[in-house]
Amino acid sequence: MNDRFLKALLREPTDTTPVWLMRQAGRYLPEYRATRARAGSFMALAQSPAMACEVTMQPLDRYALDAAILFSDILTVPDAMGLGLSFAEGEGPRFAHPLRDEKAVAALEVPDMAKLQYVFDAVEEIRGALALRGDKTVPLIGFSGSPFTLACYMVEGGGSDDFRTIKTMLYSRPDLLHRILEVNAESVAAYLNAQIEAGAQAVMIFDTWGGTLADGAYQRFSLAYMKRVIEKLHVEHDDRRIPSIVFTKGGGLWLEQIAAIGCDAVGLDWTVNLGQARARVGGRCALQGNLDPNALFAGEAQIRAEVAKVLESFGPVDAGVGHVFNLGHGISQFTPPESVSVLVDAVHEYGRRMRLPRA
């Protein structure tokens, strides 16, 4: 098994820098678009364990990636809460029943995990497909949205440019938002633990919208609830450690505080200097990131140069540190697939070179 991804998260020695990509199974791949068309809708694709397995495996068939990530959506949890999730073509997610008043918030409950069995079935099916790769098998990452990021969609009713509705609640009725976040934290912990029981070998919390919060509000309404989730996670399964990653887009300001909540790795967007981040966390956890996704629209030579910059910024991989190469956010749907080949090969080649004995 290729376990360099897990070793890097646990700050153990690796032969090169591991790499995987956020949204690595997605619209930039023609084979994904074909499967999506066959499914008929995004929800039909996400709720079919066989199809979720198929698209999870597609990037691994093309590239020498060091991890697979479950194909799903961060909004499965609020959908199971009965908020009525739908995806309109070209418009993104929508909830039929957003949380806008005391009655709706009071009625919110942790969902029955049986409603999410299709996700856990997909995890099991993907693990089976990965096992067939023999020595080339890689670990499977499970994931969830953070309590606050889920709350953004649940209150706004969908995506938002200014988060006016949830921030109005935050400032005028913080008690309501805390109630939503308490339920979400319990739900996310149960959801991730069920993924671990089904076979996920690492888990990641995507705090996509935490970075939109003011300092102070971030700690109270996002970080505190991610800490609750981390504290409830199973840290071992089948006698193996299950590492956790936390990623707040736009969260570089709070790096030390994120590293202190007990996660094994902190994901970084492209605005953060990786070498400085390494010094700031002081060996408390591994780091993941952080190439600008738009670098993949450059030519081969420039992609290789940008990869080298990221790896050189992190610096020598000494004992007790860990780095997983990734993009600073999800890969663009317009990315040329051949650019990903260049990226993955460059990370592995340069990572090996950096581990050669220094004169």
Rank of each mutant, 00 (worst) to 15 (best):
T76S: 15
G92D: 02
G90A: 10
V77F: 12
A67L: 01
R100Y: 00
V77K: 08
S86W: 11
A88V: 14
P98V: 05
A68C: 14
P98Y: 10
A96F: 00
D61M: 07
A88S: 14
D73F: 02
A88R: 14
A68T: 12
H97V: 03
P78N: 11
F95M: 00
D73P: 00
A88Q: 15
T76Q: 14
H97I: 00
I74S: 13
G90T: 11
D79H: 15
R100D: 03
L99T: 03
F87K: 02
A68E: 13
L83A: 04
D73L: 03
A88L: 13
L70R: 03
G92I: 06
L83W: 09
G92S: 01
I69L: 08
A68Y: 13
T76D: 10
L85Q: 09
D61R: 14
P98K: 05
I74W: 14
D66K: 06
L99R: 02
G84K: 04
G82Y: 13
R94G: 08
M81I: 06
I69A: 08
D66V: 05
R62S: 06
L99C: 06
D79W: 13
D73G: 09
S72K: 01
G92M: 06
E91W: 00
R94V: 11
A96M: 04
D61C: 08
L60V: 02
D73I: 02
G82R: 13
G84H: 05
A68W: 11
F71V: 12
G82L: 13
Y63A: 05
D79N: 15
A80G: 14
P93R: 09
H97F: 01
E89T: 15
A80M: 07
R100S: 03
I74M: 15
M81S: 08
F95I: 02
G90F: 09
A68V: 13
E91V: 04
L83E: 03
L60N: 05
S86K: 10
R100C: 05
E89I: 12
S72T: 01
A80K: 03
R62D: 07
T76F: 15
R62M: 08
I69C: 07
F87C: 03
G90M: 08
L70T: 10
F87R: 00
L75V: 04
D79C: 04
R94W: 00
F95Q: 02
R94F: 03
S86H: 14
Y63N: 02
T76I: 15
G90S: 12
H97C: 00
A68D: 13
G84S: 12
D66H: 03
G92T: 01
G92K: 06
P78Y: 01
A67N: 04
P78F: 00
S72H: 02
H97P: 03
M81D: 04
L60M: 01
F95L: 01
A64K: 05
F95H: 04
M81Q: 14
D73T: 05
E91I: 01
G82P: 14
